[in-house]
Design a protein around this nucleic acid. Structure first.
Lengths: 128, 128
DNA sequence: GCTATATATAACTATAAGGTTATTAAACCA
DNA sequence: TGGTTTAATAACCTTATAGTTATATATAGC
């Protein structure tokens, strides 16, 4: 639990945490169309403006959005980078997983044919 | 915590939430190599066994792992599906975002050349 | 300077997350 | 049967989340 966050402050933590909330995903979806003010953003939700501001702060801390200034408005825009990083992590993971599954399938296949002639002992395949 | 599995289980919520913790991502990484018992899983972490069991429960509720039975052991294995779904969401989002950015770039380009002949008024492009 | 609008902040509440230690339960083994 | 190993559960603590209402701040425009 310690080593992970000692070194490069793990962006993935805050990125995934931010993405875990449906309101925040909806906000991001809304932002695809471009910059939006907080009021416009809050309108479709049955939630107070401060609640939306809090969600925005979460998104901002995660680097998923940045804020501008337009008179009283603080337009919100989406930032792609953390999304790309999260996406990369997932894709990399999936790749390794698939590769591993191939190995596993091969192993299982090998074991299955091996078993016929060498039945294994009762006690655990993974005693260590 | 109950409604999650009653109604339309928004899988993305629990998937992203599960991925937001570095311990859990490390557990998943460890599982690429194949089934592992809880003790083996807990060993590298400076954290109690019950803490790991809790993380496993989170991963299990998110559908990211399933449990087997091997004598006293409850081997853990990774499940790819929710990962694929999360990956799809991210990729889909990125695509739309990139498409939108292209439109934005085009728009900005158009505005820039337009501006030369039609300087805009001081007050806000996004009043409404 | 006054008022309206847009947003942020404060203070509070309730619940969830993430950890601990101690205990319990289940399966094996001698 | 009784001890050992593996894992889960209980009870508890602390901090974080997600929301609320009320208030403060900043800017525009009269």
């Amino acid at each position: 639990m310690s080593y992970e966050q000692l070194l490069p402050p793990d962006r993935l933590d805050s990125t995934f945490a931010a993405l875990a909330d449906p309101t925040r995903r909806a906000i991001l979806a809304r932002l695809i169309a471009g910059e939006v003010s907080v009021m416009e953003l809050a309108a479709p939700f049955e939630m107070s403006q401060p609640a939306i501001s809090k969600h925005l702060k979460v998104l901002e801390r995660a680097g998923l959005v940045t804020r501008g200034r337009d008179a009283q408005r603080r337009p919100v825009r989406v930032e792609a980078r953390p999304l790309v990083e999260a996406s990369k992590w997932l894709d990399g993971y999936r790749e390794k997983l698939e590769a591993s599954f191939q190995r596993l399938d091969a192993l299982l296949e090998e074991m299955k044919s091996h078993e016929k002639t060498h039945p294994r002992p009762k006690r655990s395949r993974r005693s260590r």
